[in-house]
Amino acid sequence: MEIKCTGVAGTMESSDAMVTIEQGSGGIQLQLSSPVIHRFGNHMRSVILETLDRLGVKDAVVTVVDKGALDCTLKARVEGAAFRAAQCSEEQIPWGGAVR
């Protein structure tokens, strides 16, 4: 999936995450902040990277401002930001495919 513009998904509410995906300059560059980064930082990073990998995002700058989101929320926000950044219209979202 090619990142064409800046895509944002999520909020700054408690138990949510704000995900911003921008065009990269080779590879995935992740910046993650979270009140529970000490407890779940490594795990959250792998969830984010696996989600991007599943969507085929190979080249992006990804900023995640987490507010204590669970894995399901985090995945959904990364997916939302990625599709917006790739300028996918609703018909192009692979429901039941990469998005499960």
């Binding site: 000490h38 407890r39 930082g41």
Partner: peptide, 10 residues
């Protein structure tokens, strides 16, 4: 089961 097993604080 809901949040995962936390790592110790560094």
């Amino acid at each position: 089961a809901i949040v995962g097993t936390p790592e110790p604080i560094q």
